[in-house]
């Protein structure tokens, strides 16, 4: 089994924070599968995903994504970035631009800088963008402005933008936490389905065990910046899941008492 991402002894402390957000994490994300990062808020899921996307500096450990090692001190090369797609929790769309323009923005990394800044999209860029819109079921919204859309529609646009990048690895940070359960299931069906059709790997985070069970092949439990378990979906026990969400232990409780 080949790895889409390989992480060895990774630690990271956010600037000004005392406790590490990631504490000696080792993990292998298998290529071509769908992996869920499950855990409560503050477990380090968002940090791990941003780090894999090449957005964090100053970590320690060994990380390679799609076979290329990440440098803790320098951002990854621009050329390598379209291969890794990212779906943001808050969508991160340009509100006043059209749906099609937002999806075409996903193509910018595949164009020469000059064409990206000054030129118009090539027929191939438009073709990929239209296909992504169709796959996300929003072809009819192409000309609408994003600020006129609902939350579920916005997340479809964000996923279409990610697919337009033609990524080999899709990282999704709590992609459905802002949506109602029916909408959430639709979006995850769409995301994992589109990725499978393209042979892309998915790593998504969630704090909802039922969604992780339903849409992932593999589930990685995280708590306090550490990996609690890393199992195939069939092997996930209710005990392990419950333990992930148990009451926080001594340290924060003492802190809380000191404050009140």
């Amino acid at each position: 089994m080949s790895a889409a991402a390989q992480i060895g002894d990774l630690s990271f402390v956010h600037q000004g924070a005392g406790l590490p957000a990631l504490d000696h994490v080792s993990l292998m994300v298998p290529a071509g599968e769908s992996t869920a990062l499950l855990g409560p808020s503050g477990a380090g899921k968002t940090t791990l995903l941003a780090l894999l996307d090449g957005r964090l500096r100053g970590w320690r450990g060994r990380v390679s994504v799609l076979g290329a090692p990440l440098d803790p001190d320098h951002p990854p090369s621009r050329a390598s970035r379209p291969d890794i797609g990212f779906v943001f929790q808050e969508f991160a769309l340009v509100e006043r631009s059209s749906v099609l323009r937002n999806v075409l923005n996903g193509r910018l990394g595949r164009m020469s800088p000059l064409r990206a800044a000054l030129g118009s999209p090539l027929p191939r860029d438009l073709e990929v963008a239209r296909a992504a819109l169709a796959d996300c079921g929003i072809a009819d919204l192409a000309e609408r402005r994003v600020d006129s859309l609902s939350g579920g529609q916005r997340q479809r646009v964000a996923i279409a933008r990610c697919l337009a990048q033609e990524p080999r690895l899709i990282l999704a940070d709590e992609p459905v936490s802002n949506l109602d359960p029916a909408r959430a299931a639709e979006i995850l069906t769409l995301l994992t389905g589109a990725a499978r059709a393209r042979g892309a790997t998915v790593l998504f985070s969630s704090h909802q065990p039922d969604l992780a069970r339903r849409f992932a092949d593999r589930i990685v439990g995280m708590r306090d910046g550490r990996i609690a378990f890393d199992v195939a979906v069939g092997d996930l026990s209710d005990v392990a899941t419950a333990d992930l969400y148990r009451e926080t232990t001594a340290l924060p409780a003492i802190g809380l008492r000191a404050v009140t």
């Binding site: 957005r55 050329a79 970035r81 379209p82 890794i84 991160a92 340009v94 990394g109």
Partner: peptide
């Protein structure tokens, strides 16, 4: 949205424009 375009590999000028 700027972070999203940077993550997609858009050059600074393209981030400015779009």
């Amino acid at each position: 949205p700027i972070a999203a375009l940077e993550s997609a590999g858009a050059a600074p000028l393209a981030q400015l424009r779009y």
